[in-house]
Amino acid sequence: MSALVPPSASPGTGTQIASRQRIAHDAWNDRLFRGLLLGCALLVLAALLGAAGSTLWGGRLAFHSFGWKFLVSDRWDAVNGQFGALVPIWGTLMTSLLAMLLAVPVSFGIALFLTEVAPAWLRAPVAAAVELLAGIPSIIYGMWGLFVLAPFLAAHVDPWLNDRLGALPGIGRLFRGPPLGIGMLTAGLVLAVMVIPFISSVMREVFKTVPARLKESAYALGSTTWEVVWNIVLPYTRSAVIGGIFLGLGRALGETMAVTFVLGNAHQFSESLLMPSSSIASVIANEFTEAYTDLHRSALIALGFLLFMVTFVVLAFAKLLLLRLARKEGDV
């Protein structure tokens, strides 16, 4: 362990020079290293700018031709060269919203179950299994949605929804329509199944960070496990949980393959969740190869830019929210 001797303590001019050289060499190494690292980090920044810039550039023809009408028009007509993105935007938002409505409580349940009540021998393997499933490629989910879930919904769920809920005033409008098995409801369900493993494994990680001391004190005061969860675990992890939800939302918004299989890709506007719609990603995937005209192609790329901006805003919002909550919690 001679290295433990501080370099400056070593006697003799020869070694001193050598050591000074080494220090200079090291410093140069450090600068080089830092430059290399910085370059790599900047590449990531460049990727973001590249993705935004290229889609904006590619979509300029559409933005130029339609202006704001591109965002608010529901007319998507390739024959007459009229493109409005309202229906895909609506479909994207509705399917993601539906997915989150279903996925968030279920993910909560699963994560809490796995961290708080499941027997200890069950926790690790089940958590591992859930994480494994989070990695299944989305196209497999799409296949399942098309071949299993859609016929099932068409045969058993859609008619029931239509009969029972469709007659209600107000929300009934959401559930009217023929039993197709394809549409926003199905897409929302598939998305929910896709993001649940993701959100729940984020939440599980988060719940595990709650100090045992806090929970034990609550138990000592006579709380039930449910009360501990509700009053201790959730408030403690609030910010990170919201972060996880938004990450899941980001995934749902941009999911392409799974949604394309089950959404029906219709360009008519429809209020009903049972009717087919389209999402931004599904329109791009479906039409990009067959787009003959420059305007059509440009409109699709412009959709890509919109999708990029929407997810960017959602994710950035999530990050900022987390930052603010973290700061607030830090202050308390």
């Binding site: 007319r75 998507w76 007509d77 390739a78 024959v79 007459n80 197709l180 394809i182 394309t260 299989f261 029906g264 890709n265 219709a266 360009h267 008519q268 009717m275 087919p276 479906n286 039409e287 067959e290 003959y292």
Partner: peptide, 12 residues
């Protein structure tokens, strides 16, 4: 190659 269909649903 695609027209604004007045009715129906679209299959991929």
């Amino acid at each position: 190659t695609s027209v604004p269909w007045p009715v129906g649903v679209g299959g991929k």
